[in-house]
Nucleic acid binder design. Structure first.
Lengths: 218, 218
DNA sequence: CGAGACGTTGAAGAAGGTCAATGCAAGTGG
DNA sequence: CCACTTGCATTGACCTTCTTCAACGTCTCG
């Protein structure tokens, strides 16, 4: 029961068949509800079934950096030592499938193929984190927004090919890209004015000119 | 032959004994020489023996984001699909031990313990990348510099406990933190003026007030 | 010694942040 | 059904931080 086909470069490499998730229980998560918080013991690994989960770090003064958005088919909670270091919070109503960490580790210690799939899954997360770092560290607001839209386009689950659904608030995008909601908003309006995108139902972005968007991404 | 003890949170989890590196050949790298470049086929995994290797992404217009500094004991070249996506360049004269990728993959497919060590190694890199992302995405110049110094303090290879060696140029620090060399320089000067650090031989930073430095890091 | 690489410092400018007002749609309660 | 609230997005005016541009100092190495 694996969701829509996605590209390999999307965060959370698909572990595919044999990941033990056939036996997991499904948990329903409301918008803004936490799957787990920083400091919680790492009891489970989760596979997103539906919705979007934001992984984030919240600083003592309230600033927040979103590390990644996990989409259906992605895994969260992999590869951490001890307690969770990040928050995992749904940006919209979601479903996740849960597998006890202990079981996964137990299986992986006996099954090199599973262990290698875990290795690949975390490697893909690492690539995604580094791509984001480049964008945040070097890009202007426009470049960050443009490459964010392109990154999302590469993920699955869009009704039409040139329409990107944004199942998160402006504040989530801002916290992912190291900007403010105002800058996100202004930049999206600028892209609208340039006839590069069009905003459809509040949360759907239609890409009118993919080439120019790609150029703007740097 | 494993180098100075280091904390687990340092980038590049030590794979420890049994990583196959007993048989690797050692390669000497001059300052600013590349170990590999973006686009090169991924032929080897490298373990740093001596020096510091900067992993970076260079954009078409010359802007550069350093992803990580690899210190002795760290591994580079792990967990990538196909060709290299980043440059690896020595910031100072260094030595690396090389192991053919094919051999490592061959071994890992038969040895779950090795596969799990790879998994842990990449997981640690992921944690480091995310810590850096938080710093770059949310921190002011001062916060980025302060947490950079603290991060380096956590790595091994310092002669004295409160002296951090900076075996890289200002431009490397700037490209790691998403700042300019001028801002790096000014911020270090400010830290000097505040009597929190002291610069010893051009490249050695003595931490006079670790507590205040920690506060500034956020 | 002279040239190049690197670092520091200053002055001016720009990108993005902060603060504040407005709009808009979805609840909620009378 | 309508007034009121609440959450989110947009837009404008102003301000701060960091960048840019430029000059200068220092060190090393040919």
């Amino acid at each position: 029961m694996f969701s829509a086909p996605q590209t390999e470069q999307a965060t959370g490499f698909k572990v595919q068949r044999g990941d033990g998730f056939h036996s997991g229980t499904v948990r329903r998560i409301e918008a803004k509800e936490h799957v787990f918080c920083e400091g919680d013991p790492r009891t489970h690994v989760y596979r997103i079934e539906d919705g979007v989960i934001a992984l984030s770090k919240v600083l003592s003064d309230g600033r927040r950096q979103i590390i990644d958005f996990a989409y259906p088919g992605d895994y969260i909670g992999l590869g951490m030592f001890g307690d969770h270091v990040f928050d995992a919070q749904a940006t919209c109503a979601s479903k996740v499938k849960c597998l006890p960490t202990s079981q996964l580790e137990h299986d992986a210690a006996r099954d090199p193929a599973l262990a290698l799939r875990l290795y690949n899954a975390v490697s893909a997360e690492l690539s995604a984190a580094r791509r984001l770092l480049v964008s945040v560290g070097q890009g202007t607001a426009m470049e960050r927004i443009a490459s964010f839209l392109i990154e999302l386009k590469g993920r699955g689950g869009h009704l039409e090919d040139d329409i990107i659904n944004l199942p998160m608030r402006r504040s989530d995008i801002a916290d992912l890209l190291g900007l403010t909601i105002e800058t996100v908003s202004r930049t999206l309006t600028k892209l609208r004015m340039m006839r590069i995108i069009q905003i459809e139902n509040g949360n759907d972005v239609r890409i009118l000119d993919p080439d120019r968007l790609q150029e703007l991404a740097g």
